[in-house]
Amino acid sequence: MREIVVCGEALVDVVQEKRTSDAALAPLQPALGGGPFNVAITLGRLGSAVSFVSAVSTDNYGDAIVGALRNAGVGTAMLQRRPEPTSLALATIADDGSAQYSFYVEGTADRTVTDPGSLAPTVAAATFGTLSLVLEPGASVYENLMRRCHAERRLVVLDPNIRSVVIPDADAYRRRFRSWMPFVDVVKLSDEDAAWLGEGPAGSTVKEWLDDGVAAVVTTAGASGITVTTAEDEVSVPTPKVDVVDTIGAGDSVLGGLVHHLDRVGALSPDSVRSLTPDQWREVAVFAAHVAAVTVSRPGADPPWAGELRSD
């Protein structure tokens, strides 16, 4: 059995609904979230064998996080329960469904994660990203695990999911991101992430990441679709047309769908990913786009179960 481990934070998105008047505060609706948490939920609902590596609070929100993971079929044996509170993200929804975030992460549980130790031999792939690779001391723990997974010939997938408001030194982060590229097989990011990472004296580009050793870069562009770029080829697929409720968790659903499809076709290894043809990458991107289309058609990060996807 091939297993996937998802590494990173789980938190609570406090979604601010649209105001009904200028004088009234908009109501707040809590929802479980965090990029890596959403990826793990997506993989579990789609049917992959997946476990979550993180530090999760022992507060009520932390209990809800653990319950949601288990309900989705995500393994929780590697979770570390901590007394610190759960991180919060205030998400404000714009008229087009896009979300803007403010984060409350000082002294919270997820950034206190410690090394989980050796992963089981059955673990074929590991994903990393979002706040967990920014906030210390946990960021260094995840970075070391990423490098170890690469050395052990496990597939390494990275989604930086840039949240610039929590990055105190943009150029330092850009340099650190570039230093990870020799240890990463697949980078998934948005076009906005790619533009931000390319800015300033420490900026770098998709071509440079591929030259550093990345096998494929998967770039999302909202309604404009998904593009997969390798050293030899580039393929793009459109986004299915749906009525967008909000975009919370859309990119995370793409990543979960991508990794699940690689799992489904037996491509959870560095060598197999590098041998995929353009047509095979197109199939990966089409599947990931359909997973995300379901997510954005309903409120919050609510990815589909396998039975909700079209069979064609």
Rank of each mutant, 00 (worst) to 15 (best):
residue 274 R to P: 13
residue 285 A to W: 12
residue 125 A to F: 06
residue 17 E to L: 11
residue 231 A to M: 06
residue 35 G to N: 05
residue 88 L to R: 03
residue 303 P to S: 06
residue 186 V to S: 08
residue 91 A to F: 00
residue 291 V to N: 03
residue 264 R to E: 12
residue 301 A to C: 13
residue 27 P to S: 06
residue 108 T to Q: 00
residue 214 V to P: 06
residue 52 F to N: 03
residue 175 R to F: 02
residue 33 G to M: 01
residue 165 V to W: 06
residue 217 V to R: 03
residue 299 P to M: 07
residue 47 G to A: 14
residue 221 A to C: 08
residue 41 I to D: 00
residue 101 Y to M: 10
residue 201 P to R: 12
residue 73 G to N: 13
residue 223 A to E: 15
residue 253 S to V: 05
residue 68 A to P: 10
residue 266 G to N: 02
residue 213 G to V: 06
residue 2 R to D: 08
residue 18 K to W: 13
residue 275 S to L: 09
residue 56 V to K: 08
residue 235 V to W: 14
residue 245 V to K: 05
residue 33 G to P: 02
residue 164 S to Q: 10
residue 238 P to S: 13
residue 173 Y to V: 06
residue 174 R to N: 10
residue 302 D to C: 09
residue 167 I to S: 02
residue 100 Q to Y: 12
residue 166 V to I: 09
residue 235 V to N: 10
residue 149 C to P: 11
residue 193 D to S: 01
residue 207 K to N: 14
residue 207 K to C: 05
residue 32 L to N: 01
residue 247 T to A: 15
residue 229 T to S: 08
residue 172 A to D: 15
residue 157 V to S: 00
residue 164 S to I: 10
residue 95 D to I: 11
residue 113 V to W: 00
residue 203 G to H: 04
residue 15 V to Q: 07
residue 108 T to K: 02
residue 17 E to G: 14
residue 3 E to T: 14
residue 298 R to F: 04
residue 232 E to Y: 09
residue 176 R to Y: 01
residue 111 R to C: 01
residue 134 V to E: 03
residue 114 T to E: 14
residue 178 R to E: 11
residue 265 V to K: 02
residue 259 V to G: 04
residue 71 N to H: 10
residue 121 P to C: 04
residue 272 S to L: 13
residue 285 A to H: 14
residue 147 R to H: 04
residue 294 V to G: 03
residue 75 G to N: 06
residue 183 F to S: 07
residue 242 V to S: 10
residue 152 E to L: 14
residue 110 D to H: 03
residue 273 V to H: 09
residue 247 T to G: 07
residue 272 S to W: 07
residue 185 D to F: 05
residue 212 D to C: 12
residue 312 D to S: 15
residue 295 T to S: 07
residue 116 P to V: 12
residue 52 F to I: 06
residue 15 V to H: 10
residue 16 Q to D: 03
residue 266 G to F: 01
residue 143 E to N: 08
residue 122 T to M: 09
residue 287 F to G: 10
residue 261 H to Y: 15
residue 221 A to K: 09
residue 178 R to D: 09
residue 79 L to M: 07
residue 309 L to A: 13
residue 293 A to F: 09
residue 156 V to C: 08
residue 91 A to L: 05
residue 4 I to N: 04
residue 22 D to M: 15
residue 91 A to D: 02
residue 56 V to N: 02
residue 13 D to E: 07
residue 281 W to G: 13
residue 292 A to R: 03
residue 311 S to V: 15
residue 83 P to C: 11
residue 104 Y to I: 02
residue 234 E to P: 02
residue 288 A to Y: 12
residue 257 G to N: 11
residue 152 E to C: 12
residue 175 R to L: 10
residue 280 Q to D: 13
residue 20 T to Y: 06
residue 295 T to N: 02
residue 248 I to N: 05
residue 112 T to D: 02
residue 24 A to N: 15
residue 98 S to A: 13
residue 111 R to I: 01
residue 176 R to Q: 04
residue 121 P to A: 13
